[in-house]
Design a protein around this nucleic acid. Structure first.
Lengths: 165, 165
DNA sequence: ATGCATGCAAACACTTTGCATTCTC
DNA sequence: GAGAATGCAAAGTGTTTGCATGCAT
């Protein structure tokens, strides 16, 4: 599901909302994001600044929320205390997350049957599906090797956690 | 997986931690919670006050976090902006959630294959599973009937949302 | 022209933390 | 007795909101 300025406008207008330069730029950032990356509101704000786009943080927050409710973005609640956003991907790219409680390292995986089962559940109850996310909470191999949880220094983090956004 | 004071103590001590009256009382609240109910830290704090247990809010927060990391509690990240906790249930009681973005109404459902697939994914990567949660984001029938999203007054909420904790 | 959207700053809710004290092991 | 845990108050974080102004429709 790839949006153009026009299709975004159409979808916004259909709901009485408007296409603004800010919303267009935000969508753009997400469309140019490498597969598998997701941004927090603050990260998105930085990204926009880097591209010389002056958009206030409030507008960033308002936009990602709106676009998530529209089903354009996907709101991820991983274990980091703040939300991340990515483009909502159609079925073949739909994925889920494995998260380590120790270092917050996140791994993605695809699994179509989870979406299928969510759909089934929605139909059964008369709900309309927007998204489904499986979050698998785990301890990563590095932490296990370090003897999690007893022998772990309280501020130790797995080395690979640096790969996290 | 039902805990007694003794088994809780054993599990804490094994990690160099201690059994305190506070932790015991908190576990108790969860064990007496009707199936399907989950509490936020604040709600848990209220519940404790109602039972004449004076436990500081900080301790409540520290305890639920600790017990979640130990796998005794399950930390739920639904759509309400704050975390909820419930006893971690063994496989037959393991469940997932359907949440309405409009009213936050939450419905539970069970599905063993999701846990199985999460386990499979963990084994493949060498991760140790603590929990897996499927959150299905939806629009509930009431909101659809009201014409979500365009014709919905901005402060309208589905009537059934009152059933939410 | 209407009224939705923005930007700013201030407010917010939830959660975490420092430190002296208390209690478990 | 050593060190973990508590309670309090204060600080922190990510997020939301009120309001005047600007802009898309």
């Amino acid at each position: 599901m790839s949006y153009t300025a026009d299709s975004l406008k159409a979808e916004l207008n259909a709901r009485g909302w408007r296409l603004t330069p800010q919303r267009e730029k935000i969508l753009n950032i997400f469309q140019n994001l490498p597969e598998g990356e997701h941004l927090s509101a603050e990260e998105l704000h930085h990204r926009l600044e880097e591209e010389k786009e002056k958009i206030s943080l409030s507008t960033v927050y308002r936009s990602v929320k709106l676009m998530s409710r529209m089903g354009i973005l996907r709101e991820l609640e991983l274990a980091e205390g703040h939300k991340h956003y990515e483009l909502q991907q159609a079925s073949p790219h739909h994925h889920h997350h494995v998260v380590c409680v120790q270092c917050n390292r996140t791994i993605e995986f695809k699994n179509d049957s989870i979406l299928k089962q969510s759909l089934k559940q929605c139909e059964k109850e008369g709900f309309q599906l927007i998204d489904c996310q499986l979050t698998v909470t785990t301890i990563c191999p590095e932490a296990i090797r370090m003897g999690w949880p007893s022998t772990l220094p309280s501020n130790w983090a797995c080395t690979r956690s640096i790969s996290l956004a």
